[in-house]
């Protein structure tokens, strides 16, 4: 088995593909760097010149609004040139292979690829293929990983809870098909969160998930008892009516987050969601818009965290100075 392909021999981050296998120090460094970028948004000119002259290609083989936009904002605040490519609509439909697309864009002097793809492992494939010096950020591959989402979630948790070492965190919903959940689990366990729970019906919980260091609950009321953080997952439309779940109504009844269920958690528990939300499916509007919800803060923090990842990959290890 090859070593961790996202770290150099010296242990420096050269790609961000998955949280799995990243040392705690690397995660904390990203979070600290993100904190140093938070002020950029408050400046009159919301820019720092760290990535000036660099080309960042947003390579999205699967549609996305929020993630692509926050990556774009992050890159622009670092003064990079950003090129957005919605590949679904262009070369893939002309039969060009994934790696041919990457080669062509590399020939246009790309410095960084932000990749989203419907298949697990796509970001690893690209990272193994590109020339040294080109960095790959995984913006979501299949069910596998969505590391920047997990990092911004950790940033949000640290912002509200100050430390990780005594927390109980519950992740609720479709863990089976969720790259977000997988990355969150790795991030939480790496950051020494002592108790990570996953909650959902058996059809949506992958086999042997306990091996990742989590406890499994099928009863939401039990699973939410005394937790500090509730992370809701998005339920894809196509999974709502079929052999995985009988209906969205029944799903909401047992696994939708309502004020009553949330009352099982600690009184100061925060509610998170990676978006986009399905109100009335996995989360009640009263909770989504309620006092404990930090969902919009997640989006804001996402920009600083993505700036931090790009800056670190580009070799700017010190915090921003402007």
């Amino acid at each position: 088995m090859k070593g961790n392909p996202q770290l150099t021999a010296e242990g420096q981050l050269q790609h961000l593909l998955t949280i799995e296998g990243l040392p705690r120090g690397v995660l904390l460094h990203i979070l600290d760097t993100a904190a140093s970028f938070e002020h950029v948004a408050q400046q009159e000119i919301k820019k720092v010149p760290l990535l000036q002259g660099k080309s960042v290609f947003n390579l999205f083989f699967e549609s996305s609004t929020r993630t692509r936009t926050t990556f774009e904002i992050a890159a622009k605040r670092l003064s990079a040139d950003v090129i957005n490519l919605n590949v679904n609509a262009s070369s893939q439909s002309k039969g060009e292979t994934l790696l041919d697309t990457v080669d062509n864009l590399s020939a246009m002097q790309a410095d960084m690829f932000v990749v989203r793809h419907a298949e697990s492992g796509a970001a690893h494939l690209i990272a193994n293929h590109v020339a040294p010096g080109i960095h790959v950020i995984n913006a979501g591959d299949g069910r596998h990983a969505h590391p920047t989402q997990a990092l911004l979630d950790m940033y949000t948790i640290r912002h509200f809870k100050k430390s990780f070492e005594s927390l109980k965190v519950a992740i609720v919903g479709d863990v089976q098909h969720s790259r977000v959940a997988r990355s969150q689990i790795h991030a939480l366990t790496t950051l020494h969160v002592p108790e990570v729970r996953v909650i959902g019906p058996k059809t949506l919980i992958p086999r042997d998930v306990e091996q990742l260091g989590v406890q499994v609950f099928h009863d939401m009321a039990q699973g939410l008892r005394d937790v500090d953080v509730v992370i809701m997952l998005r339920l894809q439309n196509e999974r709502m009516n079929g052999a995985l779940l009988p209906s969205r109504d029944e799903y909401f009844k047992y696994y939708g987050l309502t004020p009553a269920k949330l009352a099982r958690a600690k009184p100061d528990a925060i509610v998170m969601h990676p978006g986009p939300m399905n109100r009335g499916v996995e989360i009640d509007s009263e909770v989504a818009d309620g006092m404990q919800s930090v969902i919009l803060k997640q989006v804001t923090f996402g920009i600083a965290v993505r700036m931090a990842v790009m800056a670190i990959l580009a070799g700017e290890r010190s915090s921003a100075t402007s």
């Binding site: 799995e20 697990s120 492992g121 591959d141 299949g142 069910r143 596998h144 990983a145 790259r179 997988r182 992958p206 086999r207 042997d208 998930v209 091996q211 990742l212």
Partner: peptide, 15 residues
């Protein structure tokens, strides 16, 4: 295989 590795890598499993 429907086991730890497929769960970790997010690969669709065959039990």
């Amino acid at each position: 295989h429907d086991g730890e590795v497929a769960t970790r890598l997010g690969l669709p499993p065959i039990p």
